[in-house]
Design a protein around this nucleic acid. Structure first.
Lengths: 242, 242
DNA sequence: AAAGATAGTGTAATGAGTACACTTAGCAAT
DNA sequence: ATTGCTAAGTGTACTCATTACACTATCTTT
């Protein structure tokens, strides 16, 4: 029996995307270090006996006071040299008892409405902020890699399970809102008429007897999302590959 | 500074699928324990300073002598009680110095041709075998969950990147072989004419001047897969979600 | 009453998906 | 050489989806 008892630290990093009715943002925390601002994903170590999903929720809450998000694991990052920037190593010495220990981190992502959540910095976070995903920003550790992977994986997931998108819209929404969301996710712009034609084929979009009010143009009709119908319609899977 | 120095074991489990020209199989190892056969995925602990991808390759090789597979991570399993069957706990006592330690495991999967690989049992594996995926089999630990998730993730990946499928066919292949593979992956049967019509639209399938020989029926034409053309054609992504 | 803003609408052309049955080429047996 | 077996290979008609494209309707503000 050989001794394989080698145990690295395990951490969780949260890649939270927020839709603000116009664009998609990523949630970052800021810490101050040697007078400089360092930005990072909210993340920390998993504790003893703690389930990974619970750890992700706890850690996000501890740093940002955000809770009740649906967090989903997307990838584990375990390169032995993923922590190599001297600035990061310096910082770990101030918060970890074993700062030199290897850390394997599990990435979690989520997608929410900016409006639905309020946060405030806590623990070692000095500030919490939404940052637009189209504006690149240098992050601590390998967090740029983690964030990019998280965004990619989320888009893939939305392709498979488009209903996720509806969680970003209000209960009742206009087709223009839906199209804006769509364009924010896929990053292209679409023809209005074709978009409407295609969307209205979907029975899970149900028109309401209500329109916008107090808008200085023709008011748009509201729609709602019928989840039951959606599930029926998606039972018949799309199965051709290329 | 609190002491968060809690370090579980980290392991890797490999979910290897093999196509035998008819159906998809999963690679299992057998160990003998108290006179009974126990089946499991090939997996073991990650070592100090070892990259996760390397660990997966090393472990697979140590147990089965298989090497040079492309292994890809698909999910990490970290429930604190994922090891609870007394039989499994008993076994860990014989191979681990700290058998009661929590183990977080990273799942890797791969898809290969059965013909391309030879294996033989090694280390604690007493036998290595291909087992058809349609025949359910009870596995050790939470390996049924891991294997099912690995199969699901692989199918999703093939939908996104169908070229993976061609690695399962010979250099030159007939449309019938392609269709058989296709049906094995998606688990449905397809109309021959429509399948051919659809496939022949793809410019990355290039017909050769060669046909089958020594078959007791009309010999089929061979095709090959042109990866360069494939990449061109897939640059124009499919971007509608529902 | 006019201007400004966004909602809402239709058509024609092209391409993709689906359902469905017979002929052809090679081999083997007589 | 004829027959029978086996899997390869082929076409059509119908429906439905995709794409490109420009004007009218309705509400608010001034």
């Amino acid at each position: 029996m050989e001794d394989f008892h080698y145990n690295p630290h395990i951490s969780v990093d949260c890649v939270i995307f927020g839709f603000d009715d116009q664009k998609i943002n990523i949630l970052l925390i800021k810490r101050k270090q040697a007078g400089k601002n360092v930005y990072a994903l909210p993340g920390d170590l998993v504790q003893k006996g703690e389930d990974l999903d619970n750890a992700a929720n706890r850690i996000l809450f501890e740093l940002t006071t955000l809770k009740d998000l649906y967090l989903e694991q997307f990838k584990t990052f375990g390169s032995p040299d993923r922590i190599k920037d001297p600035v990061d190593i310096e910082w770990l010495k101030t918060v970890r008892k074993h700062p030199e220990e290897r850390v394997i981190t599990i990435g979690y992502n989520s997608l929410v409405k900016v409006k639905d959540f309020e946060f405030s910095p806590s623990s070692f976070a000095e500030e919490v902020l939404w940052h637009p995903i189209e504006e690149p920003k240098k992050l601590a550790f390998d967090h740029n890699d983690i964030a990019n992977t998280g965004w990619f994986m989320l888009r893939e997931k939305i392709k498979r399970e488009p209903k996720i998108a509806f969680s970003l819209l209000p209960e009742k929404f206009t087709l223009r809102q839906l199209q804006t969301l769509y364009e924010a996710i896929v990053g292209v712009s679409l023809d209005k008429r074709n978009f409407r034609k295609r969307m209205l084929r979907n029975n899970f979009l149900v028109p309401m007897d209500e329109r916008e009010t107090n808008v200085s143009h023709k008011p748009a009709q509201y729609f709602k999302f019928d989840e039951a119908v959606y599930h029926e319609d998606f039972a018949k899977d799309q199965w051709f590959l290329f």
